[in-house]
Design a protein around this nucleic acid. Structure first.
Lengths: 134, 134
DNA sequence: TAATCTCTTGACCTTTACGTAAACATTCTT
DNA sequence: AAGAATGTTTACGTAAAGGTCAAGAGATTA
């Protein structure tokens, strides 16, 4: 495995590429989602290709509705390049499965909620009609 | 129409009856959802049967997933006893319909989210298997 | 009479995922 | 050299729906 030949990028460019704000990236670092990365002359953040992958992965999980807190539980996973893939993936699958269940549950709730509203709506219109016939 | 013969209740009892906290009731008053009600010797809140109905109605809407802010837009509706029923109900129905659409939309989103996760999960397991065969 | 209960208002705390501003350093462009 | 752009840290603000004290007052009960 060789070091990626892609040039490291700074925070502004990275943010623009991924269509997020710099604040978001710094925030992820703040809460420990992004590992400590390099700094140019000890100040300016510089992101390697791996760092970018990591961030993209976080965003991917986010679009799937997984909270930052949950993603945090996966912090081990982010060291993908340094750890054994077989050790990491099962944990991720477990979390995804868990999340699928949650989504299912939410959907069931919404469905029954919908019924409630429709029923309530129906009762009201009925009442309204019987009222206007007085 | 005659005044209800039910005795007014105080906040603690009302909260217990409706299985909410007194803080919740005061909060609803705070944000203007509950109209100003009577006070015993100018201090202790006293809730008439109408007040109770109003509060129950708020809670009903809440269980249907309507936010307090939305309920607030309905504040007119709460003066049900003093206004024309025919004037009020259509507005409520409109809001309910609106809410049904929102719920439908959310459900559609969740469904596609679910697909995304399942697909992602699948890709990972596939990767994992091909990996362990090396 | 003293303890206990329920009430009052006011004000700060919580969670999530950042937005926004201040004040300053460094680098790029004119 | 001067100004613009980008970077830095620190830290407060936001929305929703209350939770949780604190400190005090009136009423009930042993």
């Amino acid at each position: 495995m060789y070091k990626s030949n892609k040039k490291p990028v700074q925070i502004g460019e990275l943010a623009k590429d991924l269509n997020i704000t710099t604040r978001t990236i710094r925030y992820y670092e703040e809460i420990g989602l992004m590992g400590k990365n390099e700094r140019l002359n000890g100040a300016t953040r510089s992101y390697s290709a791996d760092d970018v992958l990591r961030l993209k992965f976080i965003l991917k999980l986010k679009t799937m509705g997984i909270s930052l807190k949950e993603i945090h539980h996966l912090s081990d996973i982010f060291d993908i390049n340094e750890k054994d893939f077989d050790m990491i993936t099962p944990r991720l699958i477990e979390i995804l499965d868990n999340h699928i269940s949650k989504v299912d549950e939410k959907m069931a709730n919404m469905s029954s909620l919908r019924n409630d509203i429709v029923e309530y709506r129906f009762r009201i219109t009925t009442l309204l009609n019987s009222n206007s016939q007085n």
